[in-house]
Simulated scan of single mutants.
Amino acid sequence: MFDRYTEKARRTIFFGRFAASEHGAVQIEAEHLLLGLVKEGLERGLQFPEGAVESIRRAIVAERPAGQNRTGTSVDMMLSKDARKVLEMADQEREAMGDKELHQGHLLLGFLLVPGCLAAQALQKVGYELEPLRAEVRAVTDRGLPPE
Rank of each mutant, 00 (worst) to 15 (best):
D91L: 11
D3N: 12
Y5H: 09
R70F: 01
K85N: 11
D99K: 06
L35H: 04
G41H: 02
G45S: 03
V38M: 01
L113M: 11
E54D: 06
E93F: 15
C117L: 06
F14D: 02
L118N: 13
D3M: 10
C117F: 05
R143W: 10
L118F: 10
E93Y: 15
T141P: 06
E136K: 00
G24N: 03
A135W: 11
E93V: 08
E22S: 03
Q121F: 03
E129Q: 11
L108K: 00
G24D: 01
M97Q: 10
A52Y: 09
A135G: 12
I13G: 11
I28W: 00
F2S: 09
T12Y: 04
A52W: 05
G116C: 10
G144V: 04
P115A: 11
M78A: 15
G98S: 06
E101V: 15
R70I: 04
E63L: 08
S80N: 07
E40T: 09
F15T: 01
L42N: 02
Q27Y: 08
R44E: 01
H103E: 11
A66M: 04
V75G: 07
V38C: 01
T6E: 00
P132H: 00
A9V: 08
R44G: 05
V38G: 01
E93Q: 11
G36R: 08
Q92E: 05
E93G: 15
A52S: 12
K8N: 11
A120F: 00
K85M: 07
F111E: 15
L79G: 08
T12S: 09
A19C: 04
T6F: 07
A59W: 01
A90F: 15
R64Q: 05
M78G: 13
E101T: 14
V140G: 05
T71Q: 00
P115Y: 04
E54C: 14
A66P: 08
